[in-house]
Nucleic acid binder design. Structure first.
Ligand SMILES: [Mn+2]
Ligand SMILES: [Mn+2]
Ligand SMILES: [Zn+2]
Ligand SMILES: [Zn+2]
Lengths: 152, 152
DNA sequence: GCAAGGATGAGACTCCATCTCAATAAGTTA
DNA sequence: TAACTTATTGAGATGGAGTCTCATCCTTGC
């Protein structure tokens, strides 16, 4: 009897959509599926060494589209990724070390709906990142770190 | 009697902080202060032609720090700038053309406060961009545009 | 098996941003 | 005004992230 890994579902879903499950692609999925820490595309490419950089970038994009990964915008604007739990959520990001937690911002939908009612734009999505200092970095921030924050 | 332009306040503030008001720097401020449309660093550098690119980038950073400009993250992750009205606000960004409106998200602070109470992070800031299609782009979006949105 | 078409990857390339460092200009002091 | 101190400038190099090309390879369905 085969043990059904959480990856299998995704693999089937991809095949259904006409994507081929190649070895390099599978390696990327494997490495990424169960991570709890953030990682950059470049880090992942380095880890997966013999797999081509282009393939890693292409696969990350694919996995973001498929909802397995989500992009995180760090305080300095740089990008990293983390495995997604699929339900809509947002990010709490450490300005110092980049450590990230998923947060559910209750009632955000209500806030967004109010925008929807007040604008002529057709609102389809939003991005929220909450920034701060994680327990480990708390107390080490300098004045400068904080006074340089104009994120909106 | 001298007419007090809105730029003068900033110039004084900068001088107070020990920054020198050089000609190139002043030119950047002038070009940027009253804009209503978004612009990229590269566009600004091109417009200000003889002013060095490095100087334009440095000055933009300075003005973001000083609160005269704010960074906008477009749907594709690229960056542009717009003059800021200083009060805390967020952005409503067109996924198609990048047109941006400032929006005040009422009650966001309450939502953020709830995060503050529920995490061990020290929350200091946040970034919110609401994405959609502006009146002019509405109706032109393809399925693809929308299904590729995993912004959180 | 085989064929068809998607996927790969080395390397070139683009874009954005920052760095270096010698030359220059702003502000200060006398 | 002249000298002085120091921040600023800018040409060009450099770095980093991501994309593109295209000949070759692999997966899948038949
Ligand atoms: Mn996430
Ligand atoms: Mn703004
Ligand atoms: Zn941290
Ligand atoms: Zn638009």
């Amino acid at each position: 009897m085969t043990l059904l890994s959480p990856i299998d579902g995704l693999v089937d879903k991809l095949r259904d959509q006409g994507f081929k499950i190649t070895h390099p692609r599978y390696q990327v999925i494997e490495r990424v599926a169960d991570r709890d820490a953030n990682f950059t595309a470049e880090e992942l490419a380095a880890e997966l060494a013999p797999v081509g950089r282009a393939t890693v970038y292409r696969t990350i994009k694919l996995l973001v589209d498929q909802g397995l990964l989500c992009r995180v915008v760090l305080g300095d604007g740089s990008i990293c990724y983390r495995s997604s739990h699929l339900a809509h959520h947002h990010h709490l990001v450490c300005l110092s070390c980049g450590a990230t937690e998923d947060v559910h911002l209750s009632d955000v939908e209500a806030v967004i709906d109010r925008v929807r009612g007040a604008t002529s734009y057709e609102v389809v999505s939003h991005r929220i990142e909450v920034y701060g200092f994680c327990p480990r970095c708390k107390g080490f921030q300098s004045e400068a770190d904080i006074t340089h924050l104009h994120l909106h």
